[in-house]
């Protein structure tokens, strides 16, 4: 561990040198690959999840996407690399990047899709009924009622997508991609355990920070009425009483 600390604090490792990018560059690469994959997956899965959840049609798509989770990610990564990269005669990272991004997107889709869909479907039928009864159109029900109520699940789906993608992007260094994974595999090849452990610490820190940021977004974006964070003081005590009363009054 102390070796890893020495490696992490060595200023040489923080600068780009000829042929070897420094820590900030690799962190940036890792972040860019990960966020691009999550963004693409979200653009695909989020609207699809809303649509399936709202209409109740197309649930087999969600089941199929969930089934993809049983596939070993390393196998998928290498298979796609072997299949795709010969067809890409691009410059630089493209032969590594394209297959990796495809796998990362495939990984990020199931949690975003599943959670968005489940979040919308789990909305209390009475709330949906009342909203329609008050004269909301289908679109208004989806965006003013179902989405805000589904938001905690949607965001937790996004969080688990980010975590999986950051983790798998590390493994993608095995097929030659840049990013923090480089330190792990290059360190292993060179028997440089300080570099390996340092890389492990970096990627864990990156994951924690990203998850923390999203947790903050979740806290800010989700209505207290949905999250149950009513603040402190008498209001919360009142809530507990009200909740107890509400439970007691519902016939078994």
């Amino acid at each position: 561990m102390s070796n890893a600390l020495t490696w992490l604090t060595d200023p040489v490792n923080w600068q780009d040198q000829l042929g070897t990018p420094g820590i900030p560059t690799q962190l940036g690469n890792h972040l860019a690959y990960s966020l691009a994959a999550v963004a693409i997956a979200t653009v695909i899965a989020f609207p699809l999840g809303l649509l399936i959840g709202h209409t109740g049609r197309g649930t087999p798509v969600v089941t199929f996407a969930n089934g993809l989770r049983a596939l070993p990610t390393l196998g998928l990564l290498i298979l796609l690399y072997v299949v795709v990269s010969p067809h890409i005669s691009g410059r630089g990272d493209a032969p590594y990047l394209v297959p990796t991004e495809i796998v990362l997107v495939l990984l990020a889709i199931p949690p975003v899709l599943g959670n968005t869909c489940a979040g919308v479907q789990n909305v209390d039928p009475a709330v949906r009924d009342a909203s329609v009864g008050m004269g909301m159109t289908g679109r208004e029900v989806l965006f003013r009622v179902e989405l805000p109520i589904a938001l905690p699940l949607v965001l937790s789906g996004l969080r688990s997508a980010v975590l999986q993608v950051v983790a798998t992007a590390t493994v993608a260094a095995y097929v030659g991609l840049g990013g923090i994974g480089r330190y792990l595999y290059d360190g292993l090849a060179a028997r440089d355990f300080a570099q390996m452990t340092g890389g492990a610490v970096l990627v864990a820190a990156l994951a924690l920070v990203l998850d923390g940021v999203l947790a903050g977004v979740q806290r800010y974006a989700v209505s207290p009425g949905v999250s149950g964070r009513f603040g402190t003081g008498p209001a919360q005590a009142g809530a507990r009483v009200a909740e107890a009363a509400g439970k007691a009054s519902v016939p078994a």
Partner: peptide, 19 residues
């Protein structure tokens, strides 16, 4: 548990020997 679950598996495999 949320914190532990955040750590990428490869990082954990690699960090284990030093722990």
């Amino acid at each position: 548990s949320g914190l532990l679950y955040t750590i990428p598996s490869l990082a954990l495999f690699v960090a284990m020997p030093s722990i």
